[in-house]
């Protein structure tokens, strides 16, 4: 195939991805009642955390450099982030393996995980509106209006959150490959979801953890999923520090990308040899 042909193919694929994205949004909007349980769950966690922080902070101005209002903001934004960071790729792969549709997915002249990624983006776009927004509103009314430290930190937060989304998704996609070796991974998924949120500072910031745990967790990619964007949002990091941390975050994105592609290729190779 010549260069022009490939370029045209790329452009064509872009519209294919766009179409997949659009279809997913439509589907999620059609099944909009599914999100209610999600909203309620997130709100329960959010309120519980908010009460927890208020109780702990009674009588103290700041603890480890963070005021109570910071922690409340942290909690609300963390709950909203959880909506964006809830991945469906594991379930998607698990279902395909169960029903044997991996074979038909492989018949399409388009990379398998590219389809899954754009489906995920579609679902998330819809749930941001249906689920994220209500949580933000409820949090703002009943807890505190979660304002960012300043405009600069809001911008840093946005960039960092984009990277943390990628880390989270790549990790989930990597995890989803387990579906090809285990029969039922639903329990594993539940464990993964909660452990991930805990280790990444999504519930309690890791600066409240013992020193050794902090050192350990800082060497892992998880803190870059929840904690870094949240720290940026409440303005705990100076701009140079923030940029340095985001550099590390980018480094993790690249590492996971490489690992994912490698493992994915190996797994697919194995499926092609053993049969789906």
């Amino acid at each position: 195939m010549n260069g022009i042909g490939t370029a045209a193919k790329r452009a064509g694929l872009k519209t294919a991805y766009g179409f997949i994205y659009k279809l997913r949004i439509e589907k999620a909007l059609a099944y909009r009642y599914d999100v209610f349980s999600g909203i309620i769950m997130q709100c329960i966690v959010m309120f519980a955390n908010a009460f927890f922080w208020r109780a702990i902070y009674s009588g103290y101005e700041t603890v480890r450099g963070a005021a109570v209002s910071d922690m409340l903001t942290y909690t609300i934004i963390s709950s909203v982030m959880a909506v964006f960071l809830a991945t469906g790729v594991e379930q998607r792969v698990m279902k395909s393996v169960e029903q044997g549709t991996v074979a038909t997915d492989l018949l399409k002249p388009i990379p398998l995980f590219a389809i899954y990624f754009f489906e995920e983006l579609g679902t998330i776009t819809a749930s941001a509106l249906l689920c994220g927004l209500p949580i933000l509103v409820v949090g703002s009314i009943f807890i505190v209006v979660p304002l960012p430290a300043d405009a600069m930190h809001a911008l840093l937060f946005a960039c960092s959150f984009l990277l943390s989304f990628l880390i989270n998704w790549l990790f989930a996609a990597l995890f989803s490959l387990l579906a090809f070796v285990t029969i039922n991974m639903s329990p594993l998924l539940q464990i993964k979801k909660h452990v991930l949120r805990l280790l990444s500072g999504g519930i309690i910031p890791i600066w409240f953890f013992p020193q050794w745990a902090q050192n350990l967790l800082r060497a892992l990619p998880f803190v870059y999923i929840y904690q870094l964007p949240l720290e940026l949002y409440i303005g705990r990091l100076s701009v140079p520090d923030a940029l340095r941390q985001m550099g590390l975050q980018l480094f993790w994105v690249l590492i996971l990308l490489i690992v994912f592609f490698y493992v994915q290729k190996r797994t697919m190779e194995k499926i092609l040899v053993q049969g789906g």
Binding site: G12, A16, G18, F19, P109
Partner: peptide, 8 residues
């Protein structure tokens, strides 16, 4: 429609 996009 999806096929139309996927197969261009």
């Amino acid at each position: 429609e999806l096929m139309k996009h996927i197969y261009q």
